[in-house]
Each structure stands twice: as C-alpha cells, then as structure tokens.
Write a protein that binds this DNA or RNA. Structure first.
Lengths: 159, 159
DNA sequence: GGCAACTGGTTTCTTTTGAAACCAGTTGCC
DNA sequence: GGCAACTGGTTTCAAAAGAAACCAGTTGCC
C-alpha cells in the first residue's frame, strides 16, 4: 500500500521525540545545577518578560494548566524566588513577580539557555530558522482550528 | 538587552508545546475508542512495518526505553493483539509480532491516523512538508552530536 | 568447568503529571 | 440582600513515566 504509515515520516512521532530530547538535554542546565523544574523555568521566563502577572495569565502565556502553574509558583515562592502580593481588585487572585533573588537566578540561567539553543540551531542558517518558526506557527494555528475530534463534547465542565 | 529570551521564540518551548498539543489531539483516535496508549501505538506501527522484532529492537526504532516497551508489549499481549515466540538463539529474548487481531485493529486505526496527520499538514504545501522533516532531521542530528553536559562555551558557536 | 561481567527484559519504587474535587471569593440576577 | 452560577487557585487522588534493583540467561576468559 502506497501510504503506509512509517514512524520516521509520521509528524506526531517525530515531533514528540524531538521535543523530548530537547527538553531532557536543555533542562539539565537549570535542573541539575539550580533545581528548577521545567514549569518553574517557564514561570521565571514569563515573569521576567512581563513583570507582574496573575497565575492565570502565566498559564495562558506558557500553555500550562492552572495546576502546573500553581505548583511551579509554590515551588519558586518556597525558595524565595518569587513574591506574591494580594490583588485588590479580586482577593482570590494574587499578583506575582520575581524577587530580587529570583531575578538574579534568572540572569544566571538565561545566557546559558540561549547559548544552548544557539548551539542546537547552529546547523541552521538564519533563513532556515525563520522557516522553522513559521512552520511551527502554521501547525499550531492549524491545530487550534481542527475539530477537537471524534464525537461532540457534551457537558463542558470547564470552570 | 537585545537577545532577551522570549518563550514565543524559544525553540525548546515551542517544540514542546507543539508536540504536546499534537499528541493530545491525535491520541484520542486510538486512546478513547480503542484503549491503545501512545507507546502501544508505536509498537503496533513498528511491528506492522517490520513484521517480527525483539523488544530491544522496538525500543531502538521507536526511541522508547526498555521499560516503556516492556509495558506496552505486555498491554498488547494481554489483549491478544500481540504474540510472543521464544527466541531460539537467546532464551532471554522473545520474538514479537502482531496477532491477526492486532493486525486487524491496526488496519482500522491507521487510515484515521494518516487522515488526521493529513489534516494537520493541510496548510503546508508539499515542499514545505519536505522542509519541515528535513529541519527535524537536522535538529535531531545536531542533538545527537551535542555534548550531553552543560559545558559552557561562551560566545563562540560560529561555524 | 566455573566464575565474573554483561545483556534482555520485568518488577518495584519514587517522582511527575493530569483530572476532578474542592475552597474561597466574585458576579449576575431577582 | 440573597441565592445561584462562575472563576482563581489549591489540594487530593489516580494514572503515567523514569530510575534503579532485579532475575534469568549468555558470553568471555582462565
């Protein structure tokens, strides 16, 4: 049969193993030496980028669900890397930002993370890098528009 | 600072979230309706492709470790989808292949999986698809060659 | 033959992840 | 005001993943 499925040419497989290998290799930089998990790392990046955010916003920006964000925030706060300030508009929520120690830690990790990424992207010319990100953008966009598959979802218990 | 890290342009993040979204969406096809996990699915594909293999070979072909393979194989065998035959050359190992039921099941899932992939790749022209796989190949190759430890080489990375 | 090192594969234990229940506070509506 | 529906965030519980111990069989070497 002419279009038999082969893992080597099956995008979900290729994408998944590539992502896993990248994660494992990169996360050594902040996991082994600084004890930062991947979700915690994402929170660090996002708070550095945006300054002060609520947990929900972090979730939206990082594509993590609220449980992951909650745990990452708790972890960072427990080590004094993050501060929470009550939100006056809504007392359920809190405004989160990095502490001085958190910012210092981030400054130490960031250049190494960027250098690692650079060494991964080394074999790609600038145009190829653009193409890569553009293709990822297209795929994400397409995913968002694809019907969420089989039968219709009934009770939407999303809260 | 000119090259501040932003998640949206950080390949590890983009790749990881893309892979996760793809997996979640695709795996519904075989998880919800057929009770097949992702590792089990990979074993199905690989055995269909190769006929008869030992667990170790499956692991190499699918980038899964031996624990994952062992569990997936046990799961499939438990449902009569896979047969194991003792290997005469080495009685520790077993020759694995799909049973008739396993092959039938696979034949039902495969076209749906391919159709799903096709709908994901729909916005990409053939040349773009080639480019995408070529880029993934390059990145995997580069990953394999990168030192596995955070050896810090500042600034260099030219070439 | 016999012993040590090794390998294919499974099991056990711990950590991680995700789903759903939950709590506290807010909003909308009468 | 008061009640119901909702939302931000945490906790609890169960499934999944990974590391390391383990078992049984094989290989190499004396």
């Amino acid at each position: 049969m002419q279009h038999a499925l082969s893992l080597a040419r099956f995008l979900p497989y290729r994408c998944s193993t590539l992502a896993r290998k990248i994660s494992v290799s990169l996360s050594r930089i902040y996991t082994e030496r600084f004890g930062i998990s991947i979700p915690e790392w994402r929170v660090l990046v996002t708070l550095t980028e945006c300054g002060e955010l609520q947990a929900k916003q972090i979730g939206e920006l990082t594509s993590m669900d609220k449980v992951q964000v909650s745990r990452a925030v708790a972890g960072l706060q427990g080590r004094g890397l993050l501060q929470r300030r009550p939100c006056e508009r809504d007392s359920r929520a809190a405004q989160l930002c990095l502490s001085a120690a958190g910012t210092r830690l981030y400054r130490r990790i960031e250049p190494e993370a960027l250098a690692w990424e650079e060494s991964l992207l080394a074999p790609l010319r600038p145009a190829e890098r653009e193409t890569l990100f553009a293709l990822i953008d297209k795929l994400e966009l397409q995913l968002a528009e694809m019907p969420d598959k089989p039968a219709v979802n009934k009770g939407d218990t999303e809260q």
